[in-house]
Simulated assay, not measured.
Amino acid sequence: MAFCQLAYVSDVSGANGCYHPDDLSHLVACARRNNVRDGITGILLTGNRGFIQVIEGPRMAVLSLFDRLESDPRHENLVVLHKGDAQLRAFPETPLSVRAASPDTIHQLETALPPLGTGLCAKLTTEAASLV
């Protein structure tokens, strides 16, 4: 069975461009519940000003989630880094793994999802890393 994978970067919306840790905890708890329900797995890299996220699962579930993310007022400047099909999940272990964005976690992301480490996508991923 093929899965859809989608990676994006976004800025935190709001006057100061930061989020409160309690807000992130609530967001992650809700996302994990919904992701279990929808068969979605992935990873969220967080920084002071933004997010890099990979979501993967059944195509319609991933696209539906992305539509909700695009209209979520907590995100600004959302940019798709990669969208495509895969035979295996890159992040099968959890409905949503959360880690701090760093050079190491960006490298792990590029290793797990090779399109992020090549061509224009690599340039966008590098720029995204500087945003978070």
Rank of each mutant, 00 (worst) to 15 (best):
A7W: 03
A31S: 15
T118V: 10
V9P: 04
V54N: 01
P73I: 14
E76C: 14
E76P: 09
V12I: 14
I106Q: 01
K123W: 10
E110R: 15
L116T: 02
L44I: 02
E93Q: 08
L120N: 13
S64F: 02
T94N: 13
L113T: 14
R32H: 03
I52R: 10
R68V: 02
G117D: 05
V54Y: 01
C18H: 15
L88S: 10
L96S: 03
A112H: 11
R59A: 13
V98L: 15
L116M: 05
L6A: 08
G50W: 00
E70M: 11
R68E: 02
F91M: 04
D22N: 15
I43G: 14
Q108T: 08
A7N: 10
A61K: 09
G42I: 04
A7G: 06
R59V: 03
H75L: 05
D22T: 15
N77C: 03
V62C: 03
A2D: 12
E56Y: 00
A128G: 13
I106T: 04
L63A: 10
A2F: 06
S71C: 09
D72L: 00
P115M: 00
T105E: 08
L27R: 10
T111Y: 07
V132T: 15
R33P: 01
S64D: 12
V80E: 04
R99T: 02
H75V: 03
S71F: 01
A101M: 03
F3D: 08
P103G: 02
L120R: 14
N48K: 09
L81F: 00
P21V: 03
S130N: 15
P73E: 09
N48M: 05
L6E: 01
S13M: 06
F66E: 11
S64W: 07
L45T: 06
L65F: 06
G117S: 09
F3C: 08
V9I: 07
L96G: 06
Q87T: 11
L65C: 11
S13E: 03
P73N: 08
C30A: 14
G57Y: 01
G17N: 04
A112K: 15
L124R: 15
A86F: 01
I43H: 11
G84H: 01
H107T: 14
V132I: 14
R33V: 07
S102R: 07
R68L: 05
G17F: 02
G17L: 07
